[in-house]
Simulated scan of single mutants.
Amino acid sequence: MNNAIQDLNDLARACGDGFPMPATANNGAVFEEPWQAHAFAMTLQLHEKGVFTWPQWADALTREIRAGQTRGEASDGSLYYTHWLNALEQLVIERQLGTPDEIHDLEHAWEAAAKRTPHGQPIVLNAE
């Protein structure tokens, strides 16, 4: 793999420059929240780098949605990107790109970076 993603820091750098949010026909955003767009972009990045195939992704997302149904979660689609993110995190852990603790730490690093970033500017993680 060229430009292989070896760990969560590589993934964060690959997705950290921001990306335009596509608009729908009704001029609304495709994603309700920025984190949903980031989860989508990270998934695309990992697939493009060969970390998983689309069938593997579909299987992971299906497992997570079914687990949510088993837990009695709403089935109205409101948790779709929560399931998406959970499936992505599970694949990252299974592929040993990161641990649950590293994911947790990175989540807080993104949150802190977002708070210190002026509105309209790309969120940039500090190199650590």
Score class of each variant (00 low, 15 high):
Gly98His: 01
Gln96Phe: 02
Asn3Met: 10
Val124Lys: 12
Pro22Trp: 08
Ala14Ser: 10
Trp54Gly: 02
Arg71Ala: 15
Ala67Asp: 14
Arg66Cys: 07
Gly72Asn: 11
Phe40Tyr: 14
Gly16Thr: 06
Thr53Phe: 06
Asn26Met: 10
Glu102Tyr: 00
Phe31Gln: 04
Leu88Pro: 01
Phe31Ile: 03
Trp54Tyr: 14
Val124Gly: 03
Thr117Ala: 10
Glu48His: 07
Ser78Asn: 12
Ile5Glu: 00
His38Thr: 05
Gly68His: 07
Val30Glu: 14
Ala58Trp: 09
Ala60Ile: 02
Arg116Gln: 15
Asn3His: 12
Val30Phe: 10
Thr117Met: 12
Gly50Ala: 09
Arg63Ile: 04
Ala112Phe: 05
Gly18Asp: 06
Asn86Val: 02
Asn26Phe: 08
Ala127Lys: 09
Gln36Gly: 04
Gln36Ile: 02
Ala12Thr: 07
Asn86Pro: 01
Ala23Glu: 15
Asp7Val: 00
Ala60Glu: 01
Ile65Tyr: 04
Glu94Lys: 06
Ala39Val: 05
Leu46Met: 13
Asn2Gly: 07
Ala41Tyr: 01
Thr117Lys: 07
Asp10Trp: 04
Ala112Pro: 02
Ser75Glu: 15
Arg13Asp: 15
Asp10Pro: 02
Leu91Val: 02
Val92Arg: 00
Gln56Ala: 15
Glu111Ile: 04
Gln6His: 14
Lys49Gln: 13
Leu46His: 01
Met21Asp: 11
Phe52Pro: 00
Ser78Gly: 15
Gln69Arg: 13
Pro118His: 10
Gly72Val: 08
Ala25Tyr: 08
Asp7Gln: 03
His104Ser: 11
Ile93Gly: 00
Arg13Cys: 07
Gln36Arg: 09
Thr99Lys: 05
Ala114Glu: 15
Glu128Thr: 05
Asn9Pro: 00
Thr62His: 14
Ser75Tyr: 05
Ala37His: 08
Trp84Cys: 02
Gln121Asp: 14
Ala127Ile: 07
Asp17Ala: 14
Asp101Met: 09
Gln121Leu: 12
Ala60Gln: 02
Trp57Arg: 03
Arg95Lys: 15
Glu94Met: 03
His47Lys: 12
Gly18Gln: 08
Ile103Tyr: 01
Leu85Gln: 08
Gln96His: 12
Asp7Arg: 01
Trp35Gln: 08
Ala39Ile: 00
Arg66Tyr: 10
Ala87Lys: 00
Pro118Val: 06
Ala74Asn: 12
Phe52His: 01
Leu11Val: 00
Lys49Phe: 01
